[in-house]
């Protein structure tokens, strides 16, 4: 499937697990990109267009919320859909993120099938 997705999570093992799920959802291996924090994600977005960003919140350097705020300020990347994949459960914070354009959230621990469905829905709509 000709869609690029970006996995932003400080845990390498979780990025690897999500990458496996993305492959099952039909994303080509060379179109799956990884970043360990929000700043790394912004750097990647300078040069590669993404169709979906799967974002953790609790990360060092630049956390997920700061990333979403920064992304919203940049018209060239503001429209890229973001889906939160995090331990965050606080309704107020998730609402703030939703107000900034985040499409939805999946709370860790999640079922792989649920994430697979999210990826399929978002990139399937673009395919």
């Amino acid at each position: 499937m000709n869609c690029n997705i970006l996995i932003v999570d400080d845990s390498r093992i979780i990025r690897t697990a999500i990458k496996k799920i993305a492959r099952v959802a039909g994303v080509d291996d060379d179109r799956i990109h990884e970043a360990a924090n929000g700043q790394e994600a912004l750097d990647i977005l300078e040069s590669v267009w993404m169709d979906l960003i799967l974002l953790d919140i609790n990360m060092p350097v630049m956390d997920g919320e700061a990333f979403v705020v920064e992304k919203a300020k940049r018209p060239d990347i503001a429209d890229i859909p973001v889906f939160i994949v995090s331990t965050e459960a606080n309704e107020e914070r998730l609402q703030r993120l939703s107000d900034l354009g985040v499409r939805g959230s999946l709370r860790k621990p999640f079922e792989p099938e649920d994430l697979c469905q999210v990826i399929s829905q978002v990139i399937g709509a673009k395919a």
């Binding site: 845990s11 609790n58 331990t87 459960a89 606080n90 309704e91 107020e92 860790k108 621990p109």
Partner: peptide, 29 residues
């Protein structure tokens, strides 16, 4: 890597059990 991430996941679950989804509980790294 796995024991760090598991701490993160369990802290999120404990946080939800302690305060529900309406109470702000800060999670460290």
């Amino acid at each position: 890597d796995i024991i760090l991430e598991l701490a993160n996941i369990l802290a999120g679950s404990v946080s939800l059990a302690l305060g529900g989804d309406k109470t702000h509980i800060g999670l460290g790294l």
